[in-house]
């Protein structure tokens, strides 16, 4: 499932953040971290959606090339 694949990517790319030292400053500004994490997570979703969209195009293109190839050549001749 796409969701699973996306989530796995998030997990892999998130791993370095999990290694950050723990700092007990949450009362100072929990907002910045929240926005940064959101941007990070959203960027991966955007990337995976883009890959998904392009992957379909590539498949269509490649598939189309093999299926319609002879007809195109016929037309060229």
């Amino acid at each position: 499932m796409n969701l699973k694949r996306i989530s796995r990517t998030v997990l892999l790319l998130a791993a370095p953040l999990l290694l950050f030292p723990r700092e007990a400053h949450a009362y100072l500004d929990p907002g910045s971290g929240s926005l940064i994490v959101q941007a990070l997570v959203a960027a991966f979703f955007a990337l995976s959606l883009a890959i998904k969209a392009y992957w379909r195009k590539i498949k269509l293109f490649v598939g189309g090339f093999f299926l319609t190839g002879p007809e195109v050549r016929d037309g060229d001749e």
Binding site: F20, E23, H25, L28, V37
Partner: peptide, 17 residues
């Protein structure tokens, strides 16, 4: 997880976002 750790990590770094 990531969200919470992110909150803590960037808490003292004003303007990081």
């Amino acid at each position: 997880q990531l969200h919470s750790r992110g909150q803590q990590h960037f808490a003292a770094k004003g303007g990081a976002a």
